[in-house]
């Protein structure tokens, strides 16, 4: 993958291969371009790398403390005055605890609030089940007016955050922990909201993945190729609005769909794809996702393996559809 000169971009170095830090770096670019942007922290200044923002624009920074409900309420109030708030928070807390504030004050009121939700999925593996966010996509995508984005790597996190400059409504940006050593998306590809990117061609079977699972989907595709199976890989970075066209096309052109996500089976990417296909074009599907249980304590990679969110699981699911 040719990353060209961009590999040396200052934002990339500062992101240290973490999507949550790429969000903070993108905010710096937003701060230069949009004087209405305001950043809120729920005691998350380092989590999302916003200390440079605080240094640059102290008047456009608000620390609310460990009070997620308050962060969303204040953000909504700021937005009504014409400002563009960015809320920096932990996914497991902001999505669940302040769900009602997000639904009423942000989604129903349709206010321009961007939520940067770090530590999503099981990226805080050893912190335990209280600190995993495995239902946030289900919560966020069930609300009208919401845009839900799951970047696959630092490139995408950076460009998706920049894309919020043009989204006049609420956004949930799901940020994980450490992402692939080598980015899986092209920096030059930028980010097109609601348009899945096809990272591998293939007409035997399709893998639709988001977030950290995109890297594993590519590994699975490579492994399947060696066995003579061409698996298309779609990076479904936007969960809402869903790229219906790309999904329906994949359903028409390949023998089945495998979804892959670091989220529970219920209500996430797999659910979104299944809701579409069940109505529009019933298609054999397999879902690679977290089972209906709370994860044990462990490193993220070990947990992914234990609960079947692995390249091997994607390979097996694909084979079951083409076999």
């Amino acid at each position: 993958m040719n990353m060209g000169a961009s590999t040396t971009a200052p934002w990339r170095e500062a992101s240290a291969n973490q999507t949550r830090l790429a969000f903070g770096q993108a905010l710096l670019a937003i701060g230069e371009r949009e004087s209405r942007a305001v950043v809120l922290s729920a005691d998350t200044q380092d989590l999302l790398g916003i200390r440079p923002w605080i240094a640059n624009w102290p008047d456009r920074f608000i620390e609310v403390g460990i009070a997620e409900q308050n962060a969303i309420g204040i953000a909504s109030g700021l937005a009504t005055t014409g400002l563009h708030p960015y809320v920096c928070a932990y996914a497991p807390f902001i999505a669940a605890r302040s769900m009602e504030q997000i639904r009423n004050d942000v989604a129903y009121a349709n206010q321009r609030v961007v939520i940067g939700a770090a530590a999503s999925g099981i990226s805080l593996g050893v912190a335990g089940g209280t600190h995993h966010a495995l239902e946030d996509l289900a919560l966020m995508r069930s609300m009208p007016n919401m845009t839900v984005i799951v970047p696959a790597d630092v490139n995408e996190a950076y460009h998706a955050t920049l894309a919020t400059l043009d989204i006049d409504g609420p956004v949930y940006l799901r940020l994980g922990g450490r992402t692939p050593e080598a980015p899986v998306t092209e920096d030059s590809a930028g980010f097109t909201l609601g348009r899945a990117s096809r990272l591998r061609p293939g007409n035997d079977v399709t893998v639709i993945a988001c977030g950290a699972m995109v890297e594993l989907a590519l590994k699975a595709s490579d492994a399947l190729k060696a066995e003579g199976i061409d698996a298309r890989v779609l990076n479904m970075h936007t969960i809402k609005p869903l790229d219906r066209e790309a999904i329906l096309q994949a359903a028409a052109e390949t023998s089945g769909i495998v979804t892959a996500e670091e989220h529970r089976f219920a209500g996430g990417l797999g659910g979104a794809v299944a809701e579409l296909l069940a109505v529009e074009r019933p298609t054999p599907m397999r879902m690679v996702a977290m089972p209906d249980e709370f994860a044990v304590v462990g490193p993220t990679v070990r947990l992914r393996e234990k609960y079947g969110m692995s390249a091997e699981a994607i390979v097996a699911a694909c084979k079951s559809l083409v076999g």
């Binding site: 608000i62 409900q69 969303i72 309420g73 204040i74 909504s76 109030g77 700021l78 009504t80 005055t81």
Partner: peptide, 11 residues
């Protein structure tokens, strides 16, 4: 109250 706090801060 949180929303109003945001409005006041926005001012």
């Amino acid at each position: 109250l949180a929303i109003a706090t945001g409005m006041a801060y926005g001012a």
